[in-house]
Design a protein around this nucleic acid. Sequence first.
DNA 1: CGACTTTGACCGGCGC
DNA 2: GCGCCGGTCAAAGTCG
Length: 225
Amino acid sequence: MEQFDQIPTQMGFLLPFPPNLTSSPLFSPQYSKSFTSITPSSLASNELDDGSTSNLAQTLVAITAQKSKHGLTSTFGGPQFLSLHRSNVNPWSFGEVTDCFRSKRSREENHDMGFFDIKMKVKKMKGRRKVREPRFCFKTMSDVDVLDDGYKWRKYGQKVVKNTQHPRSYYRCTQENCRVKKRVERLAEDPRMVITTYEGRHVHSPPDLNLEDSHAQSQLTNFLW
DNA sequence: CGACTTTGACCGGCGC
DNA sequence: GCGCCGGTCAAAGTCG
């Protein structure tokens, strides 16, 4: 597999607070205050001590190291990332980001934020509470569907979702005892864009990457900013 | 022959 | 209660 050609040259992570964020139907002020942007210092200080952030950093380090290994410069952009889960400074006590897709209502009303809407599930489950793994998702401009993030994945399903012409693929980490999953699909409005959603935390380092490698770690900052 | 992909069936959550 | 839909399973197929 040609590893590195598969890394996208452009990566627009969700969601770098657009100015009109709070005016979106799905981003009422009481929702938007629940979000916290992730900064290099907050990552470093473990301020955002939750699974999604950790896993995001983990994956970014992996991808960055892959780029570094192949002598490529990072062109990843975006000033801020969004915490998608509960944390000390993100006291969104119950709820989760469920879908990083443009909402039906937004489509119908022809909102064009230039970003995706996030649909939030805020109601409680009946009876016992369902525990969901932390998630984060991002979109990339790429010819290939599956980005090489250093981990090994096994495909376990594919589904055509409603109102999209491209199927969604489901992958699981092949590492034993690691329950991380990811789904990959192409954006209906722009098939050049790939939406990747990670769910869960890896309980191991990428097979072909030593995360203790200080070089890889130091690349994270360059990668992000 | 093992690892991986494909694909139809199945299941559970959710909205009406 | 029913039907729709997304997510998962698992048997069969493919590949190296």
